[in-house]
């Protein structure tokens, strides 16, 4: 588990009270963990902690399916930002 995944898992465990069986590969959508309100809070959290701004176009099932897929999107955005700065 990388740092981004750990941060996101920590946030969701804190907000949604997930049990120990929930991991970074668990389906956030099918399990009903991620309702509209929590999704918005999660987007704002990513904005605040990682500086990655999601638009409505980014609210796609493919991005929010698991913590792993979401963390990959965040890391990809951070990488492309760093490349642009370099």
């Amino acid at each position: 588990m990388n740092r981004t995944e750990a941060e996101l898992l920590g946030f969701l465990q804190d907000r949604a009270g997930l049990d120990a069986s929930f991991d970074t590969g668990s389906d956030l959508l099918a399990s009903g963990v991620l309702d509209s309100m929590l999704l918005i809070e999660l987007v704002l959290y990513i904005d605040r902690v990682f500086g990655v701004v999601f638009t409505s176009d980014d609210v796609a099932p493919a991005n929010f399916r698991t913590i792993e897929t979401l963390a990959a999107v965040v890391d990809q955005r951070l990488d492309s930002c760093q490349r642009r700065v370099a």
Partner: peptide
């Protein structure tokens, strides 16, 4: 809803 999650580019909810 589950079918939409496989095909739609936007996340669809009950709302």
């Amino acid at each position: 809803l589950e079918a939409c999650r496989s095909t739609s580019p936007v996340l669809i909810s009950t709302s």
